[in-house]
């Protein structure tokens, strides 16, 4: 769930817009480079964007007795790196702001920062850490997607806490309040998103091994193995 239209004071809205813009511009460049260098990526890029479309349209009930939706940004961040996900996430947010009155144009900068920038980076970072620690691919994919989802809503809570500090307990008090609304609600949803991302990644390892090898998600067989294969 994104920050609703008009619900960030103008200064905050503008500041988040300024903070997000360079990431999105950089992302557009990365995206054009990727499509030019590997035109066969276009299909998988479309599929990653589509995954975000589906997941951010699914409003699910949560343990707090309220509803929210996953983000679907972990998958694209793992496949194509976070800069490209910044573009795909922004497209999804624009669609929702313009057609569904969900999120908004004045809060687009803040929502892009949480869902299309921090989420993908945090998720991708977690994915890399877990993989380097030697865990299996799917454990890393689950952790990455879980963190991408949850961190998005932690940022949303911080953004609102900064804009609306509690008169008594200040920013910390507000953070507890907004965190209770967004972040706690999001925990089971982040688990769901992790599971769905693992599902899609499993399907991809069956259907698109070539793409995953090129993108470095699956490791290429080691040189020694290849020689053995050639000998056999």
């Amino acid at each position: 769930m994104h920050i609703a239209e008009g619900y960030l004071p103008p200064v905050h809205a503008a500041a988040w817009g300024v903070a997000s813009a360079p990431f999105v511009v950089h992302g557009v460049r990365a995206l054009t480079r990727e499509v030019r260098a590997n035109p066969e990526s276009t299909l998988l890029l479309g599929a990653s964007g589509a995954f975000t479309f589906v997941l951010s349209a699914l409003k699910l009930p949560s343990v707090t007795g309220s509803c929210s939706h996953p983000t679907g940004t972990g998958l694209g961040a793992i496949l194509f790196r976070p800069p490209i996900m910044a573009v795909l996430g922004t497209i999804t947010l624009l669609f929702q702001a313009l057609l569904l009155a969900h999120g908004g144009l004045t809060t687009l900068g803040a929502n892009v920062f949480s869902m299309a920038i921090v989420g993908p980076w945090a998720g991708y970072g977690t994915y890399l850490l877990v993989r380097r620690a030697g865990a299996p691919l799917m454990a890393a994919v689950f952790s990455g997607a879980f963190v991408a989802d949850l961190s998005t809503y932690c940022v949303t809570s911080v953004q609102l806490a900064l804009a609306f500090p509690d008169p008594g307990s200040g920013v910390a008090g507000s953070l507890a309040k907004f965190g209770g609304i967004f972040a706690v609600t999001q925990i089971p949803l982040a688990v769901s998103e992790g599971l769905l991302t693992v599902l899609v990644m499993r399907l991809l390892t069956q259907s698109s091994k070539g793409d995953l090898l090129r993108l470095g998600v699956l490791a290429a067989p080691k040189a020694a193995d290849r020689r053995e294969e050639a000998a056999a």
């Binding site: 769930m1 609703a4 309220s66 929210s68 908004g104 144009l105 609102l160 907004f178």
Partner: peptide, 23 residues
């Protein structure tokens, strides 16, 4: 929706806040 709950929380913290832009 969690976003609607956040709107309520904002009005609790700052009762005078009016959204300054509408979709």
């Amino acid at each position: 929706g969690a976003d609607a709950e956040a709107e309520t929380a904002i009005t609790e913290i700052e009762p005078d806040y009016e959204p300054w832009f509408s979709p």
